[in-house]
Design a protein around this nucleic acid. Structure first.
Lengths: 235, 235
DNA sequence: CCCCTTCTGGTCATGTCAACCTGAACCCGG
DNA sequence: CCGGGTTCAGGTTGACATGACCAGAAGGGG
């Protein structure tokens, strides 16, 4: 059962971090994610997902959180395991690496003040550079999961602040799903889920009728993980 | 970035294998899965999921397939990665193990002639013994995934043969979902998806009107994996 | 030959959802 | 101070999907 070859399997944990930022050309909100420039071979100079080796004293999720804090200085509003990638050819040299990848949502205005250090840069998901390893596949899968989960779950929460208007929430859905929704129908559907709480306050300062401010019902879980509760694998 | 402690992280691959068998007390079909008895500490004598250490020359999915063949002698009709479990306390001794778990569906009548060797035994998911490690949590999660996926995907395929009647397909859904469906409505919904092909043949020998035999449309994928095609991570 | 079973197709009431319409409420320019 | 512009907020309508139910068709068994 032990390892027969001299080589071994290395375990890495990477994270796909999503934030919502205004597009440079249009004023619409689009998806962005931070990448780090590789300073070592293989793929030196290429952009890659933030991550690191898994040390024995760290939990998988803890490692993903640490990576997130190291590269962006932020704490995620949502964090979930994406997939474990482990094909033989994904490392390009003769090492064998299995990457357990997480995906996270961070606050939009927090992401604006995030650190933009030398080797970390934010990219729009529609305009990514060439990535190292199989990271392009990973990002595509993460975007697909985000889009799919947005349809049936309430993870839009992760992009917004404590209180928000229905228009803001709708803009998040439109940015991620990539299509526009009827404001009236969107209101009816969202309110029908019972996951929103009316704060009674209104957002003022707009040049039109002041919209109501809502808050998420904290009693409802943001996403259905089945028997696995988030942030805890209830071992 | 390297491992700081003397201990390391070991990587295991386990598989939750599902088959449909008639219940011993009732004649209804129920979910069963094979477990292996541990012959070593920790948890010696307890039942556990089939699995093994990941060797550097094996793909993750290949390892899962190998485990499946070793314990049941079967090839899966469906195989998908479930989750990577990696909390610190899941090994009960001072080793650190990360388990990448797959789940699989095998043929019902093939499972009947499957090997029932000394240390391998099939159990009904509703009547499981105490399991080793956190394997009970893993099984619960796998059952939840199977039930959830059955609602929107066409993985019932994995339990059936090449051709089948609508009643057989309905029985699979009823066994997994745990409720009964109206035959007429079930027919309408399934046929509306366009994933079934009428073979033109009928099943004879029954004591009632002979039902039509259908076949799955091979052009349609059994499940939506997004950018990740099954059996291939398109690295 | 009648009866029982299941298959197969159909109807009907209900609920859901997208498209559309209308009044409400606020800011701003004149 | 007042009317126009804009968005919010709620209601209506028609198309479509869903679930409960019904009835004829087609076999085998007593």
């Amino acid at each position: 059962m032990g390892r027969q070859h001299a080589e071994r399997v290395d375990l890495a944990v990477s994270t796909v971090i999503f934030a919502l930022r205004p597009s440079p050309d249009s004023d619409l909100m689009t998806l962005w994610l931070p990448l780090v420039r590789r300073i070592r071979e293989p793929y030196e100079g290429r952009w890659a997902l933030p991550g690191g080796w898994l040390s024995p004293e760290h939990d998988l999720e803890t490692a993903a959180r640490a990576t997130l804090g190291r590269t962006t200085g932020l704490t995620p509003r949502y964090l979930e395991q994406l997939y474990a990638f482990g094909t033989l050819d994904r490392s390009a040299d003769d090492t064998r690496v299995v990457s357990i990848v997480y995906w996270a949502l961070v606050h939009a205005d927090e992401a604006a003040q995030a650190i933009d250090s030398d080797n970390v840069e934010w990219f729009a998901v529609d305009d990514l550079p060439e990535l190292a390893f199989d990271h392009r596949t990973i990002v595509d899968y993460a975007v697909w999961r985000l889009r799919t989960k947005m349809e049936y779950s309430r993870i839009a929460h992760g992009f917004l602040g404590e209180t928000f208007t229905l228009a803001q929430l709708r803009q998040v859905h439109e940015a991620v799903r990539g299509c526009s929704f009827d404001p009236a129908n969107f209101r009816r559907q969202i309110l029908a889920t019972g996951s929103l709480v009316d704060t009674g306050e209104h957002l003022t300062g707009t040049s039109h009728r002041p919209p109501r401010l809502y808050r998420y019902d904290t009693a409802v879980q943001p996403a259905d993980h089945g028997p696995l509760t988030p942030s805890k694998e209830q071992a």
